[in-house]
Design a protein around this nucleic acid. Sequence first.
DNA 1: ATCCCGAGGG
DNA 2: CCCTCTGGAT
Length: 216
Amino acid sequence: MNSAEAVSVLTELNRVYPHTREDMNFLKFENPFQILIMTILSAQTTDVTINGLRDELFSRYPDPQALAGADLREVERIIHPAGFYHTKARNIVGTARCLCERFGGEVPQTIAELVTLPGVGRKTANIVTNHAFGVADGVAVDTHVGRLSQRIGFSENMDPNKIEQDLMRLFPREWWGEINFLLISHGRAVCTAKRPACERCVIRDCCGAGCKDRAD
DNA sequence: ATCCCGAGGG
DNA sequence: CCCTCTGGAT
């Protein structure tokens, strides 16, 4: 698939899912520190659950300095509903310490720096660069983006890193921040892993998979 | 029962 | 590649 075709596919998805970014409402109206922490906590959880923690968490720990000195058990209690609370508590306090010790109390702006923080992988780092700084430093390839990229024909590779390279080559930089949200929205609503609803897929005409990998 | 808008570790 | 970490929604 060439770049023009690929962009037209994303344009169509953007028409169908116009506010996919706003749907991640836990990311709204936050400073970079809070966006980073909320994104770490959001793994394997819903934004509704995460939003319920925000007020208590950030009224107690409004900045990296406060969170760096937090009592782990107190943090665990606050974030408990989000699941993985033991790991996540260690990660967000550890991240706060790293921000203070290595980044002057600021959130770094590159993926390369962000992924050195505990609990921050490429997915989280990409969301943070996008939402906190409006920077597209890459494309986060998670299971949804990988699966759809292969089905649609954006990439023929399996390795997430190679898929990311293909996507960056295929799409102009201004799309990089949107790819994740559009493909995830479409992946959840229509192009699911097991039984994709191709009959109501708006991009089925330009999809390379053509329902071949339907499980039924 | 199953799935999540992950990351880290072996 | 595999496994583990957890709660909540459906």
